[in-house]
């Protein structure tokens, strides 16, 4: 069901393709790799489209964004299906997309690096525990997407030297706030969840709160930095949060 967008538009590199994924959904694909510039493009396009076609629901991912729509609002006209009409509208709306860097929030995440898999990660990478912590905190990450569970951020930018395979025996319960590495990705478990990533630390921040005006601390496209904290600071922040 993949159809090329015709004509391919030059402003959005590389060519955007759309695929009719379901009766009520169109998948816009920018590429098929995990790549920071592709992902930036996804978020720029999502923000751009949200302004122009606000009634749709958008699900950005690494290199694609899903558009969920009500096919009843796009009745077939002159033999053109709802998907063709929407696909054309999207491609037209993307024509004036600027891929210039847009401002995105930088969020600092305090982490107590005391995860149960920290020793394994050090052994697997050949670094000392201290080096793992320094390297994990040395770079700026970008939230590629939220998925798996409410508020779970998939972060781009992990030092390739820190890439470690997922655990062969996934945990039934990973504590809320756990900071973890899975393959070439790093992420944070917002709530207690089952999971197979290697746990290197935990943050006292609450990543997802349904009662808050903005339920997720992080949004796709945000920039993230980790800051190592000690146990006393962890408890202090956790206490302030629950007060």
């Amino acid at each position: 069901m993949t159809r090329s967008a015709a004509p391919p538009i030059s402003a959005v590199p590389p060519a955007v393709q759309w695929e009719a994924m379901a009766e009520n959904a169109l998948l816009l694909r920018f590429g098929d790799t995990i790549d920071s510039s592709l992902n930036t493009c996804v978020h720029a396009a999502t923000a751009h489209l949200r302004e122009r076609l606000p009634t749709l629901e958008y699900v950005p991912a690494y290199a694609s964004v899903l558009l969920r729509f009500d096919p009843a609002h796009w009745p077939a006209l002159e033999e053109r299906s709802p998907h063709q009409q929407l696909g054309d509208a999207v491609i037209a709306a993307l024509a004036d997309l600027s891929t210039a860097a847009t401002a995105s929030a930088l969020i600092e995440i305090p982490v107590l690096y005391d995860g149960p898999d920290l020793t394994d990660v050090a052994a697997l990478t050949g670094f000392s525990i201290e080096d793992v912590i320094v390297r994990h905190g040395a770079v700026e990450y970008r939230v590629a997407m939220l998925g798996f569970a409410p508020g779970f951020p998939y972060l781009l930018g992990l030092d390739p030297a820190l890439a470690v395979p997922r655990r062969t025996d996934p945990r039934q319960r990973v504590p809320a706030g756990s900071v973890a590495i899975g393959g070439r990705q790093t992420g944070i478990y917002p709530t207690e969840l089952p999971g197979g990533w290697q746990l290197i630390g935990r943050t006292p921040l609450q990543l997802f709160d349904v009662a808050a005006d903005v339920p997720s601390l992080l949004a796709a496209g945000d920039r993230v930095r980790f800051r190592a904290i000690d146990r006393a600071t962890f408890q202090q922040i956790a206490k302030a949060r629950s007060a």
């Binding site: 994924m21 379901a22 959904a25 694909r29 098929d32 690494y62 694609s64 997407m145």
Partner: peptide, 11 residues
């Protein structure tokens, strides 16, 4: 080998 993207009920 695929990278994650959106899924839907019915996928």
């Amino acid at each position: 080998e695929l990278i994650s993207e959106a899924t839907l009920p019915g996928t």
